[in-house]
C-alpha cells in the first residue's frame, strides 16, 4: 500500500504533532485527512475501513442471488435497490480509505488474494427467500449496532460515510422485518421458512460483533483512539436486548435455550456462540468462503479488459485534445 504521508509516518513523531493529535481525540474532535496522525492510527483505520468496504461488496452476493428469483415485483424492486445501496456503501468506504492514502485497486487485490478480510457472516448460504428478510432484520440490525457508534468515530471521513450508510441500513432493516411480518401472516409453509431462516442466521449474526472482549486483540487501542466506541460484548448484548422483543412480536423463536431476561442485570442472559466456528469461518472454512471469493475474483478478472479499454480511451482522448490545442 502506498501512503501519501509515508515520510511523516516513518519519522518519529514530533512532540507537538503527537500532543495535538492526542488533544484532538481527548476533546472528541475529528481528525481530518490532512491532519498529522500516528502511523498505527492510519493503518488501523485503513484495515477497518477496507474490511468494511469489502464486507459491503461481498455482502451483495448472498442477497443478490435472490433478485432474479424474488416472488413479487415489489420485493424484486426492494431487493434490487438494497443490493445497489450496498455497492454504493462499498464505494463511499473505499473513498474514505483513499483519504488515508490507500488505493482502491490495491485494496481490491488484497481482498481477492485473501490478504484482507470481510465480515464472516457473508460466508453462509441463502437457502430461501425468507433469508432475505432475516438478513435485513439480523445482519443489517447487527450492522446498525456496530455502525451507529461509528458515526462518532474520531476519523472525519469515516464518521461522515457512516452517517449516510446507517440511514440506509436502518431502512434495509425495516424492509427485512416488514417482509418477515408479511410472511408470518401468510401460509404455514411461509412461517416455517421464516423460522428456519431465523434458526440458521441467529448464531452467525451474534458472531458479527467479533470475538469476546478478552480475546479481541485490536479492540483496546481502537477504543483509546475513539475509532471504536463500544466493546464487542457490549454491542452483542445490546443487539440481543433489542432483538428479543422484536422476535416475540414476529412470532418466531430464537434458537437459544439459555436466552432469558435477567431482571437483576437488566439484560438478557444468552448462550455462548461457537467461537471455534467463527475462527474456522474467518480462516476460510465457512460454507461459502470459496464461492464468494471466486465470484469476486472472476468479476474482477472478467472485467479487466473493460477497465483497460476505459483507461486506453481516456488516454487517447487527452492525447487528441492536446493535439487539437497544439494545432
Amino acid at each position: 500500500m502506498t501512503t501519501t504521508h509515508s515520510a511523516e509516518a516513518g519519522a518519529p513523531p514530533e512532540d507537538g504533532l503527537q500532543a495535538h493529535f492526542d488533544a484532538t481525540i481527548a476533546r472528541d474532535q475529528r481528525i481530518e485527512p490532512r491532519d498529522w496522525m500516528p502511523d498505527g492510527y492510519r493503518k488501523t483505520l485503513v484495515r477497518q475501513i477496507a474490511q468494511h468496504a469489502h464486507s459491503e461488496i461481498i455482502g451483495m452476493q448472498p442477497e443478490g442471488e435472490w433478485i432474479t428469483k424474488a416472488p413479487s415485483l415489489r420485493r424484486k424492486a426492494i431487493l434490487f435497490a438494497k443490493v445497489q445501496d450496498e455497492a454504493g456503501h462499498g464505494l463511499y468506504l473505499y473513498s474514505a480509505a483513499e483519504t488515508l492514502g490507500a488505493d482502491r485497486a490495491d485494496l481490491t487485490d488484497r481482498l481477492i488474494e485473501g490478504r484482507q478480510k470481510y465480515s464472516s457472516i457473508f460466508n453462509y448460504p441463502t437457502l430461501s427467500f425468507a433469508d432475505v428478510g432475516v438478513i435485513g432484520w439480523f445482519v443489517d440490525g447487527a450492522a446498525i449496532c456496530n455502525q451507529v457508534p461509528l458515526c462518532r468515530s474520531s476519523y472525519g471521513p469515516y464518521a461522515r460515510a457512516m452517517v449516510r450508510i446507517c440511514k440506509e441500513e436502518s431502512f434495509h432493516q425495516r424492509q427485512g422485518y416488514e417482509l418477515l411480518m408479511t410472511m408470518m401472516r401468510g401460509t404455514e409453509e411461509q412461517r416455517a421458512m421464516v423460522q428456519d431462516a431465523v434458526d440458521r442466521w441467529w448464531w452467525p449474526s451474534l458472531m458479527m460483533f467479533g470475538p469476546p472482549d478478552d480475546s479481541s486483540p485490536n479492540s483496546a487501542q481502537s477504543m483509546a483512539w475513539k475509532i471504536k466506541r463500544h466493546s464487542n460484548d457490549e454491542l452483542r448484548r445490546r443487539f440481543v436486548d433489542m432483538t428479543v422483543p422484536q422476535a416475540e412480536k414476529l412470532g418466531v423463536t430464537l434458537p437459544d435455550p439459555q436466552l432469558r431476561w435477567n431482571a437483576e442485570r437488566g439484560h438478557h442472559d444468552f448462550g455462548t456462540p461457537d467461537w471455534d466456528e467463527l475462527m474456522r469461518v474467518i480462516k476460510g472454512g465457512g460454507p461459502c468462503n470459496a464461492q464468494r471469493m471466486e465470484r469476486r475474483r472472476s468479476a474482477h478478472e472478467d472485467g479487466a479488459w473493460v477497465r483497460e479499454a476505459a483507461t486506453a480511451h481516456a488516454a487517447k482522448q487527452s492525447e487528441r485534445a492536446k493535439k487539437e490545442t497544439a494545432a
Partner: peptide, 14 residues
C-alpha cells in the same frame, strides 16, 4: 439483475 456482483467495476454495478 444477472450482472449484479459480476460487473467490471463497482460504478457499473450501481
Amino acid at each position: 439483475a444477472e450482472w449484479i456482483t459480476r460487473a467490471p467495476e463497482l460504478e457499473e454495478e450501481v
